[in-house]
């Protein structure tokens, strides 16, 4: 198993001082909120490019992976982490076990699994491969190939 397992569940971290607001709320109150310690909850259909110039004022970003087949969260994670170098945590919530490998390698830094997966061995699903085929998309300590 590789280093990706150092990524831990949000539950282990102390974010009590951070207020979470929705994407909508952020825009409505951006002047007030940007001075506070705020995290934003981004839904799959929210356009993350709208916050790319405000990332300095955002403490953490929460992406919702509840819909198993909706792949937009992976592109959002990529844009935030790799393209715009968001320095804070990118937390994947409502995560499905079978999606962890994609979430983590796209740039999600920690996650919260849906309750239904409790008790299953995350290690088996967070990766399970000894190589990956995308050097640039590699965020996981996996051995690179090509």
């Amino acid at each position: 198993m590789s280093e990706i397992l150092q990524i831990e569940s949000i539950l282990n971290k102390d974010y009590e001082s951070v207020d979470l607001v929705s994407f909508q709320e952020w825009f409505e109150n951006v002047n007030k909120l940007s001075k506070l310690s705020v995290g934003i909850i981004v839904g799959p259909s929210d356009d993350v490019s709208l916050i790319k110039d405000q990332l300095d004022c955002i403490e953490l970003i929460v992406l919702d992976f509840n819909n198993f087949d909706d792949g937009r969260g992976y592109s959002q994670a990529y844009l935030l982490s790799k393209r715009w170098k968001f320095p804070g945590e990118i937390i994947g919530i409502n995560a499905h076990l079978d999606q962890l490998q994609f979430m983590i390698r796209s740039g999600v830094t920690s996650y919260v699994l849906l309750d239904s997966y409790l008790g299953l061995d995350e290690k088996d699903y967070a990766n399970g491969f000894s190589i990956c085929y995308q050097e640039a998309a590699n965020n996981s300590g996996l051995q690179k190939k090509y």
Partner: peptide, 17 residues
């Protein structure tokens, strides 16, 4: 072959519309 490899379990593009 090179493009096949690249999109093999690509983290960002494995759950397309």
């Amino acid at each position: 072959e090179l493009i096949r490899r690249w999109f093999n379990l690509h983290p960002e593009f494995s759950w397309l519309p």
